[in-house]
Amino acid sequence: MVDSTVNYSYHAISNSEDEMTKSELIRRAGGVVKLAALLRVTSQAVSKWPDEAVPELRLYQLRDLHPEWFEVDAPRPDVHPSTVHAAH
């Protein structure tokens, strides 16, 4: 059950190179299940993120875990799979 008193902030899509979409994060993690494991949430929780929005606090968490994903010239894991790290 979602606490209706909590204001959940979602990251809106823009053209800025430092912003990530849900699809891009899923691709970099190697799938929804792996992204969920990194964040220590269920894959259902990730699937419930609206459209391409990412909760702001999850972006902070992912920047801390994988700062290389947020670099302008970050390697794509679908092209360079060795850059994806295992969940902690």
Score class of each variant (00 low, 15 high):
9 S>L: 06
7 N>C: 05
11 H>K: 10
9 S>H: 05
30 G>I: 07
84 V>M: 12
1 M>E: 14
15 N>H: 11
13 I>C: 14
4 S>P: 09
41 V>H: 13
54 V>E: 01
62 L>W: 02
57 L>E: 14
63 R>K: 10
29 A>T: 03
72 V>D: 03
8 Y>V: 15
13 I>S: 08
81 P>R: 01
21 T>Q: 02
6 V>G: 02
28 R>Y: 06
28 R>D: 00
61 Q>T: 15
76 R>A: 14
27 R>I: 15
60 Y>K: 05
49 W>H: 06
14 S>R: 07
67 P>L: 00
62 L>P: 01
67 P>F: 00
41 V>Q: 13
22 K>N: 04
3 D>W: 02
76 R>P: 04
53 A>E: 14
72 V>M: 03
27 R>T: 15
69 W>G: 00
64 D>G: 06
57 L>C: 07
14 S>V: 11
60 Y>E: 09
45 A>M: 09
67 P>I: 01
60 Y>N: 08
20 M>W: 10
87 A>G: 04
61 Q>D: 15
30 G>P: 06
59 L>Q: 04
3 D>Y: 03
84 V>I: 05
87 A>M: 07
84 V>L: 11
22 K>P: 02
30 G>S: 10
69 W>C: 00
33 V>D: 13
20 M>C: 09
82 S>W: 15
33 V>K: 04
46 V>Q: 01
9 S>G: 04
64 D>H: 14
8 Y>P: 03
81 P>L: 02
78 D>E: 02
82 S>R: 04
56 E>F: 03
7 N>F: 10
24 E>K: 13
25 L>A: 03
74 A>Q: 01
50 P>T: 08
27 R>S: 11
61 Q>Y: 15
40 R>M: 05
1 M>F: 10
24 E>H: 09
8 Y>I: 14
22 K>I: 06
57 L>Y: 14
29 A>H: 01
71 E>V: 05
54 V>G: 00
57 L>K: 05
56 E>P: 02
10 Y>K: 07
40 R>N: 13
36 A>S: 11
76 R>M: 09
2 V>Q: 14
41 V>L: 15
4 S>D: 13
51 D>S: 08
80 H>W: 09
11 H>G: 12
49 W>F: 06
45 A>H: 13
76 R>Q: 11
71 E>G: 02
88 H>V: 06
56 E>I: 15
17 E>Y: 11
4 S>L: 11
5 T>I: 10
2 V>F: 07
11 H>W: 07
47 S>I: 12
28 R>G: 00
87 A>K: 05
66 H>T: 01
14 S>L: 10
9 S>K: 06
40 R>V: 05
83 T>L: 04
6 V>S: 06
60 Y>G: 05
80 H>G: 02
58 R>F: 10
65 L>H: 02
25 L>H: 04
73 D>C: 05
64 D>W: 12
45 A>S: 14
82 S>D: 14
18 D>R: 07
60 Y>F: 04
27 R>A: 13
84 V>H: 10
41 V>E: 14
40 R>Q: 08
6 V>M: 04
28 R>W: 03
86 A>L: 12
30 G>K: 06
38 L>D: 04
59 L>E: 05
61 Q>M: 12
60 Y>W: 07
8 Y>M: 11
82 S>K: 11
12 A>Q: 12
75 P>N: 00
6 V>E: 13
31 G>A: 02
24 E>F: 04
